[in-house]
Design a protein around this nucleic acid. Structure first.
Lengths: 220, 220
DNA sequence: TCAGTATCTTAACAGTGTCCAGATAAGTTA
DNA sequence: TAACTTATCTGGACACTGTTAAGATACTGA
């Protein structure tokens, strides 16, 4: 997945940092992820990321076009993990379309709750470039995982065109898990979860209660 | 709704602006709404709002604590309109709980699509203060409108405690409309809507298709 | 060895939110 | 009317931001 060419030993000891960093790109990504986790997506600044990586504010420009470029990389890697997570869940569902969808729904919300700032960044418009490298393709993988299970539910082979009913079903299923994730992250479910920190309650109790209402395919 | 005391004629003609603006607070709010509509929520700057209102960058401080304060006011007014919209829709549903919920769902998404930046601001964490003036109370009104219809569906009088099943139903209903709104605004539904500008298609076609899957109360 | 390239630093620029001291207008009291 | 008080706004300043330009340093490969 990575470019794979490490030019220098990342940390050869307690030696004072060399002029050439050696692992700057990855450390900038790591710093960015840490920052948005601590301060929220809007709390990110390029200079702070550079500061944490121990380089000057101008250094990141050699690895990313600009601040949006760094966030684009974070979003891209987020969608890679997200896609992996959903595909694994889909496999856990076996051959039963309903179970496949249920597993994906669980995984969808769990990912959001365990990676709150990454998830919020991934679905935030304007913070990064949608056409960064192969972002579209990577992000589409998650969508196709969901579509695959919907196709199975409606008996539509991979080549066949999606029917309107199937599309409605897909949008409804996606909406319910996506909406739940957003409400949970936005604190809109805290009236039920006792104060803050009810993450566990939301995942263990509210989510199953909600997923009971996952759509069922419309036969007619 | 407004403080109601207009100190000065807003625009007495082509006369050069007086030292005292006379209507600055409302015009700052209007400017802020225009800015986030044009440039997105993150495109807002306090200085630009001041510029559009024709005052110095320091002037807003006399009407709002800081930049977040101005955005808080925008969010507050947004929730007022949102609450009105949902209550009107609820009334259109008459006595049938299912119809009340369906009307609210339609109104929910329609509001989001017709006020995209306001809606995104309203549900964006960190951009404004949750405890600005009576924000909590105003925002809660929208929630209570939804809860009211859910109570009706489950035969729970206003005083009675919500059951777990009712809460699950509420969260599922809220999630599906909230998620649909977010997906639509985020452009995640554009694969089906031909390119950009498919707003009409989304509202007229996809939304009804999706709302067919609005949860039904779980009897057992 | 030595040119070429990749990576990084320093310095600067314009734009941002916010604070301060002071100017001006409006309201209030006598 | 006159004086005092309060509300509103300006101008200038400060620290912070993203980005660029010019130059320094280290690595690469012939």
């Amino acid at each position: 997945m990575n470019s794979g060419k490490i030019k220098r030993k990342p940390k050869p000891g307690a030696q004072k940092r060399a002029y050439h960093h050696g692992d700057l790109k990855d450390q900038l990504v790591a710093a960015a992820e840490a920052i948005i986790l601590e301060r929220g997506v809007d709390g990110f600044t390029l200079r702070e990321a550079a500061r944490r990586a121990g380089v000057s504010p101008a250094a990141p420009a050699h690895h990313f076009k600009d601040a949006r470029g760094l966030l684009s990389e974070v979003a891209l890697r987020g969608f890679q993990d997200f896609g992996d997570t959903l595909e694994a869940a889909d496999r856990r569902g076996g051959n039963d379309p309903a179970r496949r969808l249920h597993e994906q729904g669980l995984a969808y919300v769990n990912f959001a709750m365990k990676n709150p700032s990454r998830f919020q960044l991934m679905f935030r418009q304007g913070k990064f470039d949608q056409d960064y490298e192969n972002f579209q393709q990577v992000a589409n993988r998650s969508f196709l995982t969901l579509e695959g299970a919907v196709r199975a539910a409606y008996g539509l082979p991979p080549g066949a065109a999606m029917t309107e009913a199937a599309n409605g079903f897909l949008m409804a299923t996606w909406s319910i898990v996506h909406g739940f994730a957003h409400l949970a992250l936005g604190g809109q479910l805290d009236w039920a979860a006792q104060q803050r920190g009810g993450k566990k309650l939301i995942l263990d109790r509210f989510l199953p209660l909600t997923l009971r209402h996952l759509p069922a395919p419309v036969r007619k």
